[in-house]
Design a protein around this nucleic acid. Structure first.
Lengths: 209, 209
DNA sequence: TAGATTGTTAATCGATTAACAATC
DNA sequence: TAGATTGTTAATCGATTAACAATC
């Protein structure tokens, strides 16, 4: 169990393991070997065993892994049992899709507030959460103490807002904006989502062929 | 210029370089050194030079890189001058956000059709493109010959549709579904977007602290 | 017990970093 | 010419794969 800094490469594979095990569990599969997992995920069995063993290893020689146990262990490692209080800022196309589409609760978060600067959106409901004007952000945060903010804003707006949010106690960001938070706050937990980059990568892959 | 398979690690950095150079260009910056780029992107200068040199290198000793030239070279490498004919399938929250939010044209694609199985959505306009019923997919494809499909569907629906789309001439997928296309079609250009995985990774990063 | 499959160490492979000669 | 910075080779570091003893 001694852990000396697990690499991002390993961590990034955990959600995929988790989702896959979720499916297996739902399908009623009870046990699975690293070899079978490897075939179904397109990885090597060796890598899978290495990955699990960074966290102690929860298999059994001669048997493999118990699906339900492995699923719950990985969930625990990811911290999905948490309910980090979360706000979303920017209720444009992207923000609305994120708010509507994501199941925050099963991934360790609870969305409690949605904000936008546009007056005309105020009061609109997204999944029973009313859109509030950003002018009420401070008050809301002082009252509800969100730990996480989802940023669906243009980069300049995000850059201006982040220091304020940190001041208000926000400790992590799910960042859909092009502002690179990590450059200014290197120690903060941040996940960037740049779907445009994925589209460019697809373009590369097509052109390459 | 001899190219012996450029690694995915390099390719995945290109869109970020491209976006950053876009900003520099807009800001009127004419030249930049690898050292300055490295400071602003949080990479090493060495890595940046290595990356560019996989494609031939377009700098000048003692000077650095010309921003405009570098920007256009990377755009060319990514293939962004293309206009791959593209359809989007699944006009739910996610599909609508993608269709509304992405600037396909500046990334090498042209969105020409949107499809959903829900009758009630038929005829609705998204950016002047009418939502069509999936029943008309075959006819539309035979007429318009889309090369790329964006999948914003549940995994089972995606799995059922992909063979049909390939049959109809679709050659690449931007895949937002949980169905793993690459397992069945290993040679097809595919980019998967799993924003849920990113959220779980964020949860891990927070819990880890 | 025999067979299967893990946990783990060692070997390999690939990516990043460092160093420096080339050259603008 | 002198200073700066690239292009590129060599060294290092880290991640993946292979191998196998441990053990269920």
């Amino acid at each position: 169990m001694a852990k000396d800094a697990i690499s991002m490469a390993v961590i990034k594979r955990l959600p995929r393991y988790y989702r896959f095990l979720e499916d297996l569990k739902r399908a009623g599969v009870v046990r699975i070997s690293s070899r079978e997992l490897s075939a179904r995920l397109g990885l090597t069995a060796s890598q899978i065993r290495q990955d699990f063993n960074r966290y102690g290893g929860f298999g059994q020689q001669g048997y493999g892994y118990n699906v339900e146990q492995l699923h719950s262990e990985i969930g625990r490692i990811l911290g999905l049992h948490n309910r980090y209080t979360t706000i979303l800022i920017g209720a444009g196309n992207l923000g609305r899709a994120v708010a509507n589409h994501m199941v925050f609760e099963s991934r360790g978060f609870e969305l409690v507030g949605i904000f936008d600067k546009k007056e005309s959106l105020t009061g609109q409901l997204i999944r029973e959460i009313p859109i509030r004007n950003v002018s009420g952000l401070d008050e809301f945060c002082l009252e509800n103490r969100p730990k996480v903010a989802v940023l669906c804003l243009p980069p300049e707006a995000a850059r201006a807002l982040v220091p304020q949010l940190i001041e208000l106690g926000v400790q992590a960001f799910w960042n859909f904006s092009a502002y690179d938070i990590a450059l200014d706050y290197p120690d903060l937990p941040v996940e960037n989502v740049h779907i445009g980059d994925s589209l460019m990568t697809l373009c590369y892959k097509i052109s390459e062929k």
